[in-house]
């Protein structure tokens, strides 16, 4: 049963990358407990616009946990209290009536704040461009069964491919390391036959780009796995390291 709730939102407001930000607290009354956290931000923004104030900027798109656009820290945890979910899939029923919810942008040198809760995650795209691809001829789609892949391999590759590139792993990591994201991408392609031709180059280049972007190194805190909305395991960080060793000895 939906209840009516009153919530206080303590939100990081920062007008642009160059002006220091600060927390501002807003109170929203009589909202339904079945609303999502992003719905709550919509309600707040409606009120702010009516009052002639700047609405709170936040990234979002699908609002069903599949696109990877949304994400910020909710009470100190990337994406929020419920595990295995994106910020857009957090619901008010998981908060207490009258609670103050703190929303803070992902923080990393490689993720500069653009405005309020919006950060620039294009560093992840540049890592992908450095090696997270396979080379195939374009044209008509190949027959789906032309390359047989054993089911267990397909499943492992799919577990890795489930990464939506949201960057929560970086945000939650005490070192601001992108190892879980990069590990998932490397593992996904290294497992599949289509990924073999660039296998050695891929891991070297993606790791090099990850370092260039200014992400920290992995100290195995494992915090990334705990906040990942797709439950990507730190197994993939180990796979990245094995791929790296293999590349050092094979090239």
């Amino acid at each position: 049963m939906a209840k009516k709730m009153t919530l206080h939102l303590r939100i990081w407001r920062q007008p642009n990358p160059h002006t220091p930000g600060k927390f501002v607290t807003y109170t929203i009354r009589d909202v339904s407990s079945d609303m999502s956290l992003l719905d709550l931000l919509d309600v707040l923004n409606e009120e702010l616009i009516k009052k002639g104030e700047q609405p709170v900027e936040f990234d979002n798109d699908c609002r069903e946990g599949i696109c990877g656009m949304c994400g910020f820290l909710v009470n100190g945890v990337a994406h929020g209290p419920k595990r295995g979910r994106t910020a857009c899939q957090q619901y008010l029923r998981d908060f207490k009536d009258g609670e103050t919810i703190t929303l803070e942008p992902f923080r990393a040198k490689a993720f500069p704040v653009i405005k309020d809760l919006v950060v620039d995650r294009s560093a992840l795209d540049r890592i992908m461009a450095a090696g997270g691809y396979i080379s195939v001829n374009t044209g008509s789609a190949p027959d789906a069964n032309s390359i047989p892949i054993p089911k267990d391999i397909a499943e492992q590759a799919f577990d890795a491919a489930a990464c939506i590139g949201c960057g929560a792993c970086v945000a939650a990591c005490p070192n601001a390391s992108a190892s879980l994201f990069v590990g998932a991408k490397i593992a996904h392609l290294a497992l599949l036959p289509q990924g073999q031709p660039e296998r050695i180059r891929r891991v070297l280049r993606m790791v090099e780009q990850m370092d260039k972007e200014g992400f920290g190194d992995c100290s195995n805190h494992g915090e990334c796995e705990a906040v990942c909305p797709k439950n990507i395991s730190i197994k993939h960080i180990a796979i990245m390291r094995r791929e790296y060793l293999r590349a050092l000895f094979c090239s």
Partner: peptide
């Protein structure tokens, strides 16, 4: 972060 805590679960932090 001003507010940061571990998510618990499988975290090894």
């Amino acid at each position: 972060y001003r507010v940061y805590r571990t998510a618990g679960g499988t975290s090894r932090q």
